[in-house]
Amino acid sequence: MSLKDRINDDMKAAMRARESGRLGAIRLLLSAIKQREVDERVTLEDTGITAIIDKMIKQRKDSISQFEAAGRTDLVEQESAEIAVLAAYMPAQLSSAEIAEQVQAVVAETGAAGPQDMGKVMGVLKSKLAGRADMTAVSALVKAALAK
């Protein structure tokens, strides 16, 4: 079953169970997927959908920090609930040890020697770790590995 089919099935289940918060988050996700498909005139695969979910989670995390600064705990709770719904569709996250192992392997594979090769290493890692790791943390690990 594709990720899109799973999301559609979950939307139907949320409708039947009358879970308005969960239903709203799923509808937002389906809307973003449909928008990308219409804009690019393609049918998205699981990797494209995962990228959309990752972007939506990042947006909600940014919103949470803004709402916390403004003292809007009601909106923080709503955004946190949406993150929980969206995170269920993301692939399993890699541990920091697994990420470090991947970074070392790609650095050795590409023959990267210094900070000037960071783009080459990140390009390979982005395709390997998309959706399974926080790319800002990966970037920090690459920077540290290339600084040696």
Results as ranks from 00 to 15, higher is better:
84 A>C: 04
95 S>K: 07
138 V>A: 05
104 Q>K: 05
106 V>N: 09
95 S>C: 08
71 G>I: 07
107 V>G: 00
115 P>R: 02
136 T>Q: 06
70 A>G: 04
139 S>M: 13
90 M>D: 10
138 V>T: 06
141 L>P: 00
92 A>D: 05
105 A>N: 12
118 M>Y: 04
111 G>V: 03
112 A>T: 00
101 E>Y: 04
98 E>I: 00
79 E>V: 05
96 S>Y: 07
93 Q>M: 15
120 K>M: 13
110 T>I: 05
99 I>A: 01
119 G>P: 05
112 A>C: 01
140 A>T: 12
134 D>V: 13
104 Q>H: 04
114 G>M: 04
143 K>S: 07
123 G>Q: 02
125 L>V: 05
101 E>H: 09
95 S>A: 12
69 A>C: 03
84 A>V: 04
133 A>R: 09
100 A>K: 12
80 S>M: 10
97 A>H: 03
89 Y>M: 08
124 V>D: 01
141 L>C: 00
131 G>S: 10
100 A>R: 09
141 L>R: 01
133 A>W: 10
123 G>E: 00
138 V>S: 02
108 A>M: 01
107 V>I: 13
74 D>F: 09
111 G>Y: 06
117 D>H: 07
128 K>H: 10
87 A>N: 14
132 R>A: 14
82 E>N: 15
78 Q>V: 11
142 V>C: 06
110 T>V: 12
134 D>F: 10
108 A>I: 00
104 Q>Y: 00
90 M>E: 09
